[in-house]
Simulated scan of single mutants.
Amino acid sequence: MAPTLYFMRHGETDWNAEARLQGQQDIPLNEAGRKQAAEAGHRLAEILPEPDGLPWLVSPLGRTRETAELARKAIGLPPQRYTTDDRLKELTFGDWEGRTWAELRSVDRNMVKARTADKWAYVPPRGESYAMLHDRIALWLKTVTQDQVVVSHGGVARVLMVLLAGKASAQAAEEPIWQGKLLVFRNKSAEWA
């Protein structure tokens, strides 16, 4: 049986609030994001009586590290007791990072239309597709041998929905990935907690 993953997406940033593509840009949490991180920690403690008994694996970007630290602190755990893994970084939007969809449509409507037509496979200029991220996360999953808490990004959650819950890639690319909530991957399913 595959290990259970307690997945936490990083809290909100100003770029999230402005609908800007973050990708691998290191944007800090805003006040709402800090509250979401603490709420996610409390929710984790409700469903997992001993959350410090599991390893915490975190994307190395600042917004995910801050989310993990605030979540841990909120439930009385040492904030920095986690491990980072580069493979858990968000996909990169390349030249599109920092822009909104409205801005991109004004620059090159055809590229945005092409991505909308196939979100999973489309590669932005100097960027990465969900399909490419899928390969990176699949390699990481081969190393996962026990239940753990994972703090990462929306793109990673979508890929995990395909790899662990059997969702079609086109469906996973459209799924909303909430901040401040937990997504539990268990027994070939993905459920919000």
Rank of each mutant, 00 (worst) to 15 (best):
L29D: 05
Q36C: 05
V58S: 09
R63Q: 13
A38C: 15
Q25R: 09
D26Q: 12
R65G: 00
G41E: 00
P28Q: 15
P79T: 02
A38Y: 11
Q22P: 01
P78T: 10
L77W: 11
H42D: 13
L54V: 04
Q36Y: 04
G76Y: 08
K35W: 11
K73V: 01
H42M: 14
T64V: 02
K73R: 15
I47K: 09
Q22V: 04
R43H: 14
L57A: 08
P28M: 14
E50V: 09
E66Q: 15
I75V: 15
P78I: 04
T67V: 05
T64M: 00
S59R: 03
G53W: 13
L70T: 01
P78S: 09
I47E: 10
E31G: 05
A37N: 05
P79K: 01
G76H: 07
R34Q: 15
G62R: 11
N30Q: 13
E31W: 02
G23D: 06
R34S: 09
L57C: 13
R72N: 05
I75A: 10
A74R: 07
R72F: 07
R65F: 00
L77T: 11
A68S: 12
P60W: 02
G41Y: 00
D52R: 12
R43T: 14
E46K: 14
A37S: 10
A71F: 01
Q24P: 02
R65Y: 00
S59D: 06
A74Y: 06
P78Y: 01
A45N: 09
R34T: 06
D52Y: 05
P78G: 04
L54W: 05
A71C: 06
G33H: 07
L48M: 09
H42T: 14
G62K: 10
T64E: 00
G62Y: 06
G33A: 11
Q36L: 03
P28A: 15
L29N: 08
P28K: 15
I27K: 07
G62V: 07
E69P: 04
K35D: 14
V58L: 12
Q22Y: 01
G41S: 00
L70F: 05
E69A: 13
A45R: 12
V58P: 07
I27P: 02
E66D: 15
E31K: 08
G33W: 06
L57F: 07
E50F: 08
V58A: 12
P49L: 14
G23C: 04
A71R: 00
L70I: 11
P78M: 08
R72T: 04
A68D: 02
R72S: 08
P51A: 13
L57K: 06
R65K: 10
I75F: 12
Q24Y: 00
L77G: 09
Q22A: 01
E39W: 08
N30W: 13
I47C: 13
A40R: 05
A32V: 15
A40T: 08
K73M: 11
K73Q: 14
A37G: 06
P49S: 14
L61V: 01
L57E: 06
R72G: 02
E69L: 03
R34P: 03
A45C: 02
L54G: 02
A68P: 06
L54Y: 01
L77M: 15
G33K: 10
D52Q: 14
A71S: 07
Q25I: 08
L61W: 03
L70R: 03
A38L: 13
Q25W: 07
V58D: 09
R34H: 08
P78E: 11
W56R: 05
R65V: 05
P78K: 06
P28F: 15
